[in-house]
Simulated scan of single mutants.
Amino acid sequence: MMRINIFDIINSKNALLHDDGLSIFHKVEKLYDNYNHPIELDFSGINRLSTLFLNASFGKLLAKYGTEITRHNFHPINYSQITSFMDKFNDMWDNFENKENYQAYRELDFA
């Protein structure tokens, strides 16, 4: 299994920015498209994480490859030091899988 280290790519202990998430997406996309092997995304050294970052990285992987390929091939690891990682990750995943409902909620808020 291949592994990329988030810290090494974004050069920060905070995975917060949309652009950083896009950098991760593009790195993973390139590796997966070239080698077609599962990839571990290593969060060692990362202390903070935003849903913005997750949407730009894992959310885009979900959009491009779908839930099954993403679930079986892109694995976050070493994230126990990040408070509520799984809550944010699951929220991001749920928003993707229920995007029609999510969009409807957003439209109600702006009505």
Score class of each variant (00 low, 15 high):
M2W: 00
M2Y: 02
M2K: 09
N11G: 09
S12G: 05
K13E: 03
N14E: 08
A15L: 10
A15V: 05
L17V: 01
D19S: 07
D19V: 02
L22M: 11
S23T: 07
I24F: 06
V28W: 03
L31G: 01
Y32G: 05
Y32T: 04
Y32E: 03
Y32K: 03
D33S: 07
Y35F: 06
H37Y: 09
I39Q: 01
E40W: 00
L41F: 00
L41M: 09
S44T: 10
S44K: 08
G45A: 04
L49K: 04
S50C: 04
T51R: 11
A56G: 03
A56T: 05
S57M: 08
F58E: 11
G59D: 02
A63Q: 11
K64S: 14
G66T: 11
G66M: 13
G66N: 10
I69V: 15
S80I: 11
S80F: 13
Q81K: 15
M86P: 02
D87S: 14
D87I: 12
N90F: 10
D94S: 13
F96A: 10
F96P: 09
N98C: 08
K99D: 14
N101Y: 08
Q103E: 05
Y105D: 12
R106N: 14
E107Q: 13
E107K: 14
D109C: 12
F110W: 02
A111R: 15
